[in-house]
Amino acid sequence: MSIKSSYKAKQATGKSIEAIAVVSPVTFSARYDLDRTNGIICRQDHPLRGTSIIDTVLVAPGVQGGVAGGWAFLAMKGLGVGFKGLVFGAVNPVMVQGAVAAGIPIFAGIDLEIFDEVKTGDRIFLDPLAKTVSISKI
């Protein structure tokens, strides 16, 4: 993979992975935003409504809402419709606990300049050990 650019996060955990990004301009909630059976963003007023999140890395500025994410990531993984990784600006413990339970990498405190560059459909590489999120060159 050739790297176009890399961005640093303050916190990260999990395994290194590479996947397609789904970039949300709004905060994320597993319960409020997702059809957790089909892996689709379904919230009525969500700008990405109808987008599939299966095997993608969600990149979002923050999170909102409840504890559903704690089980939801694991349940979705079990159904084969889950995220492959999560990258957030701000985060609450639920997302981290849920990601750990599902065994997927999660990043928090990502350099917000990433939102000027990364687009839905970009291929990105997550390296939790280095706490970097890299965007691939096409």
Partner: peptide, 24 residues
């Protein structure tokens, strides 16, 4: 867990907890 219980415990009761999702 359950975010509302957490907010109540911390704020009204003065107990100490984070959001603890199910597995946690």
């Amino acid at each position: 867990g359950d975010t509302g219980t957490v907010a109540y415990a911390n704020s009204v009761l003065g107990a100490r907890t984070n959001y603890e999702a199910g597995p946690s």
